[in-house]
């Protein structure tokens, strides 16, 4: 009755709401945890202590060099056709503007194709992208590549409609990538509301002028750590089931949803198993990644350090898509492994979370999955996720303690059972 015991403890027993309460204590104490910041450093120290005090084994920190970017003061003021102070958030890694800012006319486009067609108009202007929101993983291209594409046609800066499924005048930040040989121009996200308004103004033939000021700076890489804890396996201690979430966040809100929830249900999975006095046959390893938001920097370093042991990894698990009510598990692996995962998920019938979907993975486990290790990620109710993602709204208020408890139960049952099976998951 192991699965039932885990579910009872996590959802109905004394551990109910625990992952939520633990997360609230951390994020209320240190706030958001940007790569390279003092608050991320403090969060790692606190988590190291927490995991030790929880009685987990082999608690240690693995060093990683991570990007250090700070946004500084920033503002965007529309000067024509009327004065309007706009909300904005600079994008990770962006260069700043000169101290006096950049004052320029605006060119509004709705796609990269339109930018190409109107390339001669872009020179010396601020390009505003008002791309429609389709699905996140497509629309996010505008945030990532917007500055490069605008710079290629001679723009001075780019302002991108936030990649958000819903907006109450909320700018959403995120990472962007410059390209070698293309001038680095300042880039930021503005609100859906302002992007749409400027699009309407431009379509009426109005001249739009914006003064953009960004104090963003890039510093030398900072020292950081992936945080690791284990329950060492009883029979095959060298073999591993890895459960994970990332501890860093953007510098807005509290980073509670992205990815505090994922990190804390991963810790909770080990806590639940330990509290029940269980010890699986192979090692359950918790990894709290650093600098995921900058492109999986900590995860890449971990892969480089540990890939020699790849044959001993049975399953890698990552939760980085919210910890709302789970729908099931996304899984990548062989047909045989998928059939086994379906049986494992059948154990979650009491909480009705039994489905196995395709495309398990995520930024922090993709290196392992691409190399052939079975990978699983939590699939949950994403209805609210991209409304709050990378914005000031990512706080504990959006989290739900009961939903987190259910997610933790799923995470614990799957990781424990796979770690305790007599054989590793078969690969293709």
């Amino acid at each position: 009755d192991v699965a039932k015991a885990i579910i009872d403890l996590a959802v109905y027993g004394k551990a109910q709401n625990r992952s939520y309460e633990r997360l609230a204590l951390l994020v209320d104490t240190v706030g958001p945890r940007l790569s390279g910041s003092k608050s991320l450093e403090k969060a790692i120290q606190i988590m190291y202590q927490n995991l030790k005090e929880d009685g987990l084994e082999n608690v240690h920190l693995e060093p990683v060099k991570i990007p250090h970017w700070e946004r500084g003061e920033e503002s965007a003021v529309m000067l024509e056709p009327r004065v309007h102070r706009m909300a904005l958030l600079g994008l990770g890694g962006s260069v700043g503007t000169p101290p006096q800012g950049i004052t320029a006319e605006v060119l509004v486009v709705t796609s990269f194709d339109e930018l190409q067609r109107r390339a001669p108009e872009a020179k010396g202007k601020i390009v505003v992208y008002n791309q429609p929101y389709a699905i996140y993983f497509k629309t996010v291209e505008y945030r990532v590549r917007g500055a490069v594409e605008a710079a290629k046609v001679g723009a001075l800066a780019s302002l991108i409609r936030s990649v958000a499924s819903f907006s109450i005048y909320s700018p959403h930040t995120g990472v962007q990538e410059y390209q070698d040989g293309v001038p680095k121009i300042p880039t930021a996200c503005i609100t859906v509301e302002d992007a749409e308004m400027m699009s309407r103004m431009a379509s009426r033939g109005s001249r739009i002028v914006i003064q953009l000021k960004m104090g963003a700076k890039n510093y030398a890489d900072a020292d950081s750590f992936n945080t690791v804890a284990e329950i060492i396996g009883s029979k095959y201690p060298e073999q591993v089931v890895l459960v994970s979430g990332h501890l860093d966040s953007w510098d807005v809100g509290q980073g509670a949803m992205d990815d505090g929830g994922g990190a804390f249900i991963s810790w909770e999975a080990l806590s639940l198993i330990k509290d029940l006095g269980l010890r699986p046959k192979r090692t359950l390893r918790l990894v709290l990644w650093t600098a995921e938001e900058q492109g999986g920097i900590g995860a890449f370093q971990y892969y480089q350090s540990h890939k020699a042991n790849i044959s001993n990894y049975s399953l890698v698990m990552e939760s980085d898509g919210g910890t709302f009510l789970p729908y099931g598990l996304q899984f990548t692996g062989s047909d045989k492994a998928r059939a086994i995962m379906k049986e494992v998920m059948g154990l979650l019938q009491p909480i009705n979370v039994t489905r196995v979907f395709s495309d398990g993975g995520g930024t922090d486990i993709k290196f392992w999955v691409q190399a052939g290790v079975p990978g699983a990620s939590l699939l949950d109710d994403l209805y609210k996720y991209f409304s709050f993602h990378h914005s000031q709204g990512d706080t504990m208020t959006v989290m739900d303690p009961k939903e987190m408890s259910v997610a933790a139960a799923v995470w614990a049952v799957v990781s424990y059972v796979v770690a305790d099976l007599e054989e590793m998951l078969p690969r293709s």
Binding site: K4, N312, A339, L421
Partner: peptide
Amino acid sequence: KAIYRNDTSQRTFEEIKEEIAHYG
């Protein structure tokens, strides 16, 4: 370089299924 583990399962799917059911 990534090292792959050979697929060395000694058990049938039915046996694994029974093993998993045991955790229920």
